[in-house]
Simulated scan of single mutants.
Amino acid sequence: MADFADTRVSLAGHGTLVALAATASASGACLADVAGIRVTVRVPPHLTIAAQQNILILRRGSAYWAIAVLPAAPAVPPPPPPPDDSPPVDRGDPAPAPKPVVTTGTLVCPPVATSTWRDGKWRTDIGSSTSTDTYQGRYSGSGFGRNSGFAFYGSKPRSLAGATVTKATVKLRRLTSGDYARRTPTLRLVTQPTRPGSFPTVNETTAGPALGAQGQVSPWETTFELPTSWGQSMVNGSRGGLCITVASDDPYIRLAGRDSWSAAWTLTLYWRRS
C-alpha cells in the first residue's frame, strides 16, 4: 500500500530506483528516502536491510519492493605516481665513515711488594720482607752473597687488558750505601706479579738510570722511562714485576723500597684504546 507521500508526488514510471533506508527492515517492511520522498518499502523474507544502507527498489502498482542491498563502493588504491623523468641530482661523494673514538689515560700502579733476595731467601734483616729497600750486587768485602731487588705489581696493570701502552715509567731513588759515585742498576722484567717463595723468573734486561747516592751526588731520584714493550707485557699479563740484579758483585746499589719512600718503584702506564 502507498504511504502519504504517494499523494504528493508519484514515482510511477521511474522503473528501478535507488533509495536510502531510513530504518532497518522489520515485519517485512522499512522506510526509505528516494528522490526526496519518504516511502514505505516492502522487504522480501530473504532480504535484510539496515538503516542508512542503499537499496534498490521497484514499484509495482502502488507498492514499493526492495529487490537488493547495494554494496559500498570498493576501495580503489590511488594510481601510482608518474615516473620522475627529471635528471638525478648530483649530491657529491658520500660522507666518510666516522673516525673511531680513541680514549687515552694513565694508570698509576704502586708496587704491592718490594723485597730483596740474598743467599737463597728473602731478606728480613733490613726490614719487612714485603716493603724493604731493594739492593743489587754485593757490598765490598761482605761474606754474604749477591743481592737482587724486586718490585711486584699485582693485578692492577692487567685492568688495562686490550689497551695499547704508549709509554711506561718507574720512580726510583738511590739511597746511601756503597760508594757515592753515580751508578747504573741493571733492570730486568719479572714474570711473577706477586712475590713467590723462591727466586722469581727474570727476563728482559735494560740499563737503568745513572744515580748518585742520596744527599751526596745528584741526581739520586728520577722518573725513568721503561721500554714501551715492558709496559705492554705487564698489561697483557705475561710479566708482573721489575728487579735490579747483576751477575757480578758490582755495582753495589741500594734503591728505596716502600718503607723508605712511599713513591718507590711506582709504575705509571700511559695508554690508549679505540
Rank of each mutant, 00 (worst) to 15 (best):
I57K: 00
T186Q: 09
E221R: 10
S115Q: 02
S233M: 13
Q192N: 06
W220C: 00
A72V: 01
N54S: 05
S177K: 10
Y153K: 06
K99G: 12
S155D: 10
R273D: 03
A151R: 01
P100E: 00
P87I: 01
G105F: 12
V18W: 15
P88Q: 00
R8A: 10
G215F: 13
M1W: 15
V170D: 13
V69K: 10
I244V: 04
D179K: 14
T132V: 00
N54M: 06
G237N: 06
A22R: 14
L269C: 04
S131A: 05
C30K: 02
T223I: 07
S86V: 11
A68M: 05
A24S: 15
L56N: 13
S159M: 13
S238F: 10
Y252I: 03
T130M: 13
M1I: 15
T223P: 13
G178S: 05
P219Y: 13
W271L: 06
W220V: 01
L211D: 03
G92Q: 09
A161H: 14
F144A: 05
C30Q: 04
W220D: 01
R188F: 14
V34Y: 15
G36E: 15
T166R: 01
L11T: 01
S140Y: 15
A256F: 10
A29Y: 10
R60V: 09
P227N: 05
P94F: 01
C243I: 09
R60H: 09
G162R: 08
G92L: 11
L269S: 04
V112A: 02
T116K: 02
T186P: 11
A2T: 03
Y252M: 03
A210I: 01
S86I: 13
L160N: 00
A66E: 14
G13N: 12
G137F: 13
R158T: 11
T268F: 05
T205I: 11
D250C: 12
D3F: 12
P87V: 01
G212Q: 06
S260F: 13
A256T: 04
P100G: 00
R146H: 06
T176Y: 15
P71W: 02
T103M: 14
T222Q: 12
H46K: 06
G149I: 04
D85H: 14
L269Y: 03
R123E: 13
T16D: 08
R118P: 03
T40L: 14
G240S: 02
L20Q: 06
P74W: 01
V43Y: 08
D125T: 02
T40W: 10
D3S: 05
A161L: 13
P83D: 02
P71H: 00
C30I: 10
G15D: 08
D133N: 02
L160Q: 00
F144M: 11
G237V: 04
D85M: 14
R123L: 11
A264L: 07
R273K: 10
T266L: 08
T164E: 02
V41P: 02
K121F: 11
A24Y: 15
S159Y: 15
Y153T: 07
A73F: 00
G231N: 02
L172C: 02
R182G: 08
L107C: 03
T228A: 05
P88C: 00
L160E: 01
S238C: 09
P78V: 05
R146I: 06
M234E: 07
T176W: 15
T106Y: 11
R183S: 04
A19N: 05
K167S: 11
F4Q: 02
D33A: 07
T7R: 04
